[in-house]
Amino acid sequence: MNPVFNMDAATLSPVALFLQADVVVKLVMLGLLAASIWTWAIIIAFVGRLRRTRREMARFERDFWKADDIDAFHKAEASLDIPSARVFAAGVQEWRRSTAHEPIDRDGTRERLATAMGAASALEIDKLSDRLNVLATVGSVAPFVGLFGTVWGIMRAFTGIASAQNSSLAVVAPGIAEALFATAIGLFAAIPAVIAYNRFSHGVNKVEASLHRFADGFHTTLSRQLDGAR
């Protein structure tokens, strides 16, 4: 068995590549590993949050359309920590303010109801998608950070080759592998971030569409009541 090959195999292990790396490359690797851990923490938390939000919204909207008394439903459900509940509460509050005094401005009330519930919906979507910008940033930046580590490592490897005046594989391979390892870690951080960002963006878009449908339906209900008001 070739002893040089055995030495290279040990030298090219991930732990050895990290330990032998330059300080700059080590910092790049540590930063990318931290970004990967942060990415997975966001992914795990967001999966549960999105699933719970969609389930609770579906339950709230189902109960709302079954309710006969909006005021009673508002007292019982409006304080829930659910996007649909907060949009509903915004609509009820604006309805009460706009219809508190006569004569009622019907067109103005309809416009204010749409504005209030639209603003509440936008706020809920902003809160729900708050961490998606981190995934987008990691997905777009991590490969370039890893590439920077690779370029720096290759420069260091070439400097070592020039100093040793030896370009054999045993001399070149560790430095080149150490440099490429930074790019691999960058891709390891970026790929899950990009996939999760695309999937979660689709889920947030579905929540947004559901909120808009609910707000439109509630607006229509209040508009009918407004037509019957004096």
Rank of each mutant, 00 (worst) to 15 (best):
V207C: 06
A229T: 12
F60A: 09
F218T: 07
G118Y: 04
S201W: 01
W38T: 14
A90L: 02
I154D: 00
L211C: 04
R230T: 15
T115Y: 07
G228S: 15
N198I: 05
L27V: 10
W38E: 10
I191E: 07
D69F: 05
V25E: 02
L32Y: 05
V23C: 06
L187T: 02
A16R: 03
E56G: 09
A193M: 08
L33R: 01
D126V: 11
A78M: 04
N205L: 07
G108L: 01
W152R: 03
R52Y: 12
G146E: 01
G118Q: 03
Q225E: 14
A45K: 08
P83V: 11
S129M: 04
G175D: 04
R86H: 14
D81I: 09
A10G: 09
V15H: 10
M7Q: 14
S163N: 11
E111Y: 09
I185H: 01
A58F: 03
D68Q: 10
A162I: 02
G217T: 06
T150H: 00
F188M: 12
G118N: 06
R230Q: 13
R54S: 14
L132D: 01
R55Y: 10
G91K: 00
T11W: 04
S13I: 06
R110Y: 06
A58I: 03
R51A: 14
E102M: 13
F188P: 01
L19Y: 07
G146M: 01
G146Q: 00
A76Y: 03
F218Q: 05
S163T: 13
F214K: 05
P192F: 08
R97D: 11
S98H: 02
D227A: 15
S167M: 12
A136H: 03
D63L: 15
R86P: 09
R55A: 15
A190P: 01
T53C: 13
L211S: 05
N133Q: 12
A90S: 10
A157S: 09
F73K: 02
S121D: 10
R131Q: 11
V204M: 03
F148E: 03
R230D: 12
L27C: 12
G186K: 02
V92D: 00
G118C: 04
T11L: 13
D126N: 11
N166G: 09
L128P: 02
A10D: 14
Y197W: 08
T183Q: 00
D69W: 05
L128T: 14
K127L: 15
E56P: 02
L226D: 10
L12R: 08
T221Y: 08
F46H: 10
A182Q: 04
V145A: 04
A41G: 09
E124F: 08
A89Y: 03
S210V: 08
G228H: 15
F158H: 02
M117P: 01
